Amino acid sequence: MSTPPPVPAPQNLRWLYLHGFASGPDSTKGVAVAKHYEAQGIHVERLNLRVPSMEQLRLSAMLDTVREAIGGAEDRAVLFGSSLGGLTAARVAEQDPRVCALVLLAPAFRVVDQLHRRMGDAAWKHWQTSGFIETDDFAEKRKVRIHSDFIPDAEAVDARTGGWPDVRVPTLIIHGSTDDTCNIEYSRQWARGRRHVRLVEVKDGHELTASLPRITAESDDFLRAWGTSPRSA
């Protein structure tokens, strides 16, 4: 796939990193990506998507936060998104023409289906009936209770365009073949037949921490038209 030249002028281009579920702006991948591009003179803003709060997390609020962070009508953005942040990036891109490229790391496509599959029927029903589910908050190193209203809100967002983001901009996906949180089959299915999407499979799990050098190298090559430095031969 050939990457087309970017539309915006460089001074109008913003680089944003979107963290995943129960994570935060200081995640290992987010910090590593920002540090890598800082060395190239590119500022990557790591957004806080724990909105409106971790306990009351809403995918719709995450979308609003990203759209606001892009800036004004003349601004453009390259979005990096990890897990739920990857789904968020794709959903923003399908509706906001200011987004010109995506790098998705183990994106949580069809997030409600994936959560249900991972939790099992009993835990899923308990979440819906009790109103809360307790999970690990990796950013603050504590337990957190997330309200069940996350489910209908995410279902409403993810029901658009048949449950799959209708993304038309150049997209790079990097996904681990042993990911037991966000099944790689969802990325394979979404990428299939989309000529503007490049799927890179790595031997890694959901966190992708062992694949950080591969992530930055593939991103450099993919985003060369937007100002990155290609990896050395």
Rank of each mutant, 00 (worst) to 15 (best):
L212C: 06
G20Q: 11
K141D: 13
G131L: 08
K203D: 03
C182I: 00
A90E: 04
A159K: 11
V66Q: 06
A61L: 01
Q11M: 06
R192L: 09
V78M: 05
D136E: 11
V197W: 00
P5H: 06
E94M: 11
T209E: 05
S27H: 04
V78E: 01
P213D: 06
A139V: 04
K203F: 00
E185A: 14
L212F: 12
A122V: 14
Q56N: 08
R76L: 01
R46W: 09
R58H: 04
A73F: 03
H147I: 02
G20L: 10
S82C: 09
G163C: 10
M119V: 04
W190V: 12
V144A: 13
S187T: 00
S53P: 01
A191Q: 07
D179P: 00
M119G: 07
F132E: 14
R194Q: 00
C182P: 00
R58T: 03
T65H: 02
H36I: 09
E207S: 14
R117G: 02
A123V: 13
A73G: 03
A101W: 08
K29D: 03
S27D: 11
N12V: 04
G71C: 09
F222G: 14
G176H: 00
L49T: 07
R231Y: 07
V44L: 08
A61I: 02
P107I: 13
